[in-house]
Amino acid sequence: MSSIFTKIVNGEIPCHKIAEDDRFLAFLDVMPLVEGHTLVIPKQEVDYIFDLEPDVLADLMKFAQSVAPAIKKAIPCKRLGVTVIGLEVPHAHIHLVPMNVMSDMNFSNPKLRPSQEELAITAEKIRRS
């Protein structure tokens, strides 16, 4: 059965895209820790990030690195936190989280529940940056 991220890649589930190429996709988390929380995934469905081929893993990080400046410019923050947890969706992914304090990266914090309109505005702001 396809993961929710594969369904997003296939266009079966909509998302708020930040960037995309033939192998990778970056889109907003619909239940973010903070505004601008972005997920970066390989389009290839692989459950565990360290099961990716080494060159794919390296290119995934390079793709995330190319997305990061736009997030940081659009969402004022001190840093972009980067984490790989991988328990909630069985599809390799990287979290890019704008952060001003360490607790912004605490995944135990309550998640925000932005509207689709708010997510669309944030995605557009990031894409324009």
Rank of each mutant, 00 (worst) to 15 (best):
L119N: 04
M99A: 14
H95R: 00
P76T: 14
M105A: 14
V101M: 12
S108Y: 12
S66W: 01
M99L: 15
A92E: 08
L96H: 07
A120M: 02
V67C: 06
P69M: 00
E117L: 10
E117F: 03
T122N: 09
S108N: 09
N109P: 06
A92F: 10
H95A: 01
I71F: 06
P110R: 05
R79Q: 15
V82D: 12
S103F: 12
E118M: 06
F107Y: 04
E88C: 06
A74E: 13
M105S: 10
K125Q: 05
E124Y: 02
H91T: 09
H93P: 10
E117T: 15
R79F: 14
I94A: 02
L87D: 13
D104I: 09
N109Q: 14
H91E: 11
R79P: 07
K73W: 04
A68I: 15
P110I: 06
Q65Y: 11
G81L: 11
K72M: 11
L87N: 14
P90R: 03
S103A: 15
E88W: 06
D104H: 12
G86Y: 01
V82E: 13
A123W: 05
G81F: 05
T83A: 15
F107N: 00
I121C: 02
L87Y: 11
T83F: 12
H95C: 01
D104A: 04
H93V: 10
K111T: 10
I94L: 08
N100Q: 01
K72C: 04
F107K: 01
E118I: 12
E88F: 07
P69E: 00
K72N: 07
L119P: 05
K111C: 09
R79S: 14
P69G: 02
V89Y: 01
V67S: 05
F107W: 02
H93I: 08
C77G: 03
I75E: 07
K73N: 09
T122M: 15
S108A: 13
I121N: 07
E118D: 04
V101R: 15
Q116I: 06
A120K: 07
H91P: 14
I71Y: 02
V84G: 02
P110L: 04
Q65C: 07
A120L: 04
